[in-house]
Amino acid sequence: MRTVFWVAVIIFLSDQATKYYVVHMLSLDRVLAINVWDPYFNLRMAWNYGINFGLLSLDSAEQREMMRWVLIGVALTIAAAVLWWIYREPGSLWHRIAAGFLVGGALGNVVDRVLYGAVADFINMSCCGVQNPYAFNIADIAVFIGAFGLVVLPHNEKAA
């Protein structure tokens, strides 16, 4: 569990530090766009009230507020379930690292929802003439890597 904890802490702090820097120090919440290495890597402010790609972003303020707390509850439940699973069946080192990625990322986005009412997304990447309209953050990447790792990586040390 120590591995899961430390990976989660590193992911969580990395996510929150980058969000603080980009939103508050670079004032992306006001300037809305900063070209860093156009079109490959740019900063585009996007407040995500839903889940991936803005799915479940509702229109009215009342609906958004309700969905905010539902999504906080879902994220905390998933993080707790993953922690319980890894506690009961620790699995391989890679599995524990993947669990730490998922938990750290989920908690990073929970903090955003509590503080801002939405998740602060800002990384935008495009390539090869295709303009990507979506933005994401470190927590989103970590949740994806963690979930992918928990599904794909071997669970026990002998299989690794």
Results as ranks from 00 to 15, higher is better:
Asn156Cys: 12
Gly129Glu: 04
Gly117Thr: 11
Leu58Asp: 01
Asp38Met: 10
Gly91Ala: 11
Arg96Thr: 00
Val151Ile: 15
Gly105Arg: 03
Trp37Arg: 10
Trp69Ser: 04
Pro133Arg: 11
Ala118Ser: 13
Gly146Val: 05
Leu13Phe: 15
Ala135Lys: 01
Cys128His: 01
Gly129Ser: 07
Glu62Asp: 11
Phe144Trp: 14
Asp59Gly: 10
Trp37His: 11
Gly105Val: 04
Arg30Ile: 09
Asp121Phe: 11
Ala99Lys: 00
Val103Leu: 03
Arg96Gly: 08
Leu43Ile: 07
Thr18Cys: 10
Val114Asn: 06
Ser126Thr: 00
Met45Phe: 10
Val9Ile: 15
Val74Tyr: 13
Leu26Thr: 10
Glu65Phe: 05
Arg88Val: 00
Ala159Pro: 00
Val31Arg: 13
Thr3Pro: 03
Met1Ala: 14
Gly50Ile: 12
Ile72Val: 15
Phe136Cys: 08
Leu153Trp: 06
Arg64Cys: 09
Asp15Val: 01
Phe122Leu: 14
Arg68Thr: 09
Ile10Asn: 05
Ser60Trp: 02
Ile10Glu: 05
Ser14Glu: 15
Asn48Met: 09
Ala61Trp: 07
Ser57Gly: 12
Ala79Cys: 11
Asn109Met: 03
Ala80Leu: 15
Trp94Thr: 01
Ile138Leu: 15
Tyr116Arg: 13
Phe101Arg: 00
Arg113His: 06
Ile86Met: 13
Trp47Phe: 14
Arg64His: 06
Glu62Thr: 14
Ile141Lys: 05
Thr77Ile: 13
Glu62Cys: 00
Phe122Asp: 09
Ala118Lys: 13
Cys127Leu: 07
Ala61Gln: 12
Asn124His: 10
Ile141Pro: 07
Phe122Ile: 11
Val36Arg: 04
Asp15Gln: 10
Ala147Arg: 04
Asp121Ser: 01
Arg64Gln: 12
Leu83Phe: 14
Val23Thr: 14
Ser60Pro: 06
Arg64Gly: 04
Val7Tyr: 02
Ile51Lys: 01
Ile141Phe: 10
Leu150Tyr: 02
Leu26Asp: 00
Tyr49Arg: 08
Ala75Met: 00
Thr77Asn: 12
Asn42Lys: 09
Asn137Cys: 12
Val70His: 09
His95Arg: 13
Val23Met: 14
Ala147Phe: 12
Trp69His: 02
Gln63Val: 01
Phe5Ser: 09
Trp69Gly: 02
Val74Gly: 08
Ala106Ser: 11
Phe101Lys: 04
Gly129Lys: 01
Leu56Met: 08
Val130Phe: 10
Val82Arg: 00
Ile145Pro: 07
Pro154Lys: 13
Val119Trp: 03
Arg113Val: 02
Met66Gly: 03
Trp94Met: 06
Val22Pro: 11
Val70Asn: 08
Trp37Gln: 07
Tyr40Val: 01
